[in-house]
Amino acid sequence: MSPSGHRSILIVGAGTTGLTAALELARRGFRPRVVDRDAGPVPLVESRALGVNARTLTLLSPSRVSDAILQEAHQLKRFRIVSKNRTLVSLDTTRIPGAYGALYALAQGHTERLLIGALSNYEVAPEWKTSVEKLSLDAAKPHVTLRKHDGSEEVASFDIVVAADGAHSAVRRAIGFGFPGDALESSFYLADFRYTRDIDPNFAEINLVDPGMIGRLPVERDVLRYISTLADFESRIVHPAPVAERVWASDFRIHFRHVEAMAKGSVFLAGDAAHIHSPAGARGMNLGIEDACWLAWLISEGREAEYSSLRMPAVMTVLKQTRQLTSMITMHNPLSITLRDLVVPVLFRIPAFSQELLRGVSGYDTPSPPWIDGAQ
């Protein structure tokens, strides 16, 4: 172990971002401590995030987690946007250079469990039902009060604290960071249905019903997720097979928010603790994993002070893309809808345009990881 490996590191949050940070640090000789206020990983049937992109698979290849993901995931080979029974966009997502396809479908709960399994190889395990009660930057090191599952408190100092504790981050609030941004006025709704037989898991589709949309995403071979801006969307679904059960349903509002800087002193923010945005393009979980990998590498290089300046441009790139995609599928103005339906098919017939969008979906529109040879 290198001398830097002796630095004490606390990771707050054991979702995909926090677990990835722990894994990337552990395989570089560090022994991070990971805490999470929940009782365990996200339930398998309640996973909001589904998409795993090519950039994430590249980043997780040194730890071999990408191999495990590919064994369980379904590749999304086609993506369609349909309006009034007319196909506006038909994108072949396999037409991207590199070792991986652009996007794969795997529920977040599965991904978290694969990360936990890989982390156990380094004898590191999340401490569940453990939360941050206080954090102070007054001393030379971040001073943290932890409340454990039995109600007892532990006070400790750490060389580095990584906040991966989600959109309502306690660490972000403790260091006095705001979370400016805005939310869409309308709510989004989702429901997962299990069918009596397997369905095609290799394509995703957005059906524009103007105003509003209904999206279809594969979860498993016999489970589809529908996501919509319409409260009554379930009555509009054309199911591809007899329904066995309605597995899960939820609703949410889309926010576009980000911190002004992703670090303060020795406290670093990653994933939803630093930025949240629309699920359009499936960038949320993937961007958090990217944050975690970059931060772990920078810590190992003694360059963690560069983290915020290196990551903020990538965050702004993704927020811009997801806002544009969301605007395209949530239009209400009839004139704008007509114009969109005329222009979008023309744009996608331009190879450079469709390839650029595909690069974004793949996650290749942000800087390549310099520690992985041949990465795009």
Rank of each mutant, 00 (worst) to 15 (best):
R253Q: 13
D232R: 00
P126I: 11
V346H: 02
M285V: 00
N121S: 12
L298A: 01
D182Q: 11
V315R: 00
M1K: 05
G15I: 03
I254H: 02
M213G: 01
G181N: 10
P369N: 10
A241W: 08
T56C: 12
A261H: 15
A156V: 08
I160R: 05
Y100N: 11
V52T: 15
P218W: 01
F188Y: 14
M328K: 12
P242L: 10
S362F: 01
H74N: 15
D222W: 02
S368L: 08
P279N: 11
V34H: 03
R95N: 10
Q108S: 05
K141P: 10
L342K: 05
T17Y: 00
A125K: 15
P32H: 04
I237T: 02
Q355K: 13
S4M: 14
T145P: 03
I199M: 02
G181M: 09
S300R: 10
Q376C: 01
R147M: 12
P370T: 10
L319K: 06
I350F: 04
R78T: 12
P201I: 09
K148M: 12
P126K: 10
I116W: 06
S157F: 00
W294D: 03
T366K: 02
R216H: 01
V171Q: 11
S83I: 03
N333A: 09
D159V: 04
M285F: 03
L217H: 01
A375T: 11
I299S: 05
A170Y: 07
I69C: 08
A22P: 11
R80S: 13
L60T: 05
G51Y: 09
S327A: 14
V52R: 03
A49Y: 06
G51K: 13
L347K: 06
I160M: 08
Y226L: 07
A139R: 09
S152K: 12
F233D: 10
N202G: 06
K84D: 14
G98A: 07
G178M: 09
D150R: 12
D36L: 12
A296R: 00
A99G: 11
L319T: 03
A107S: 14
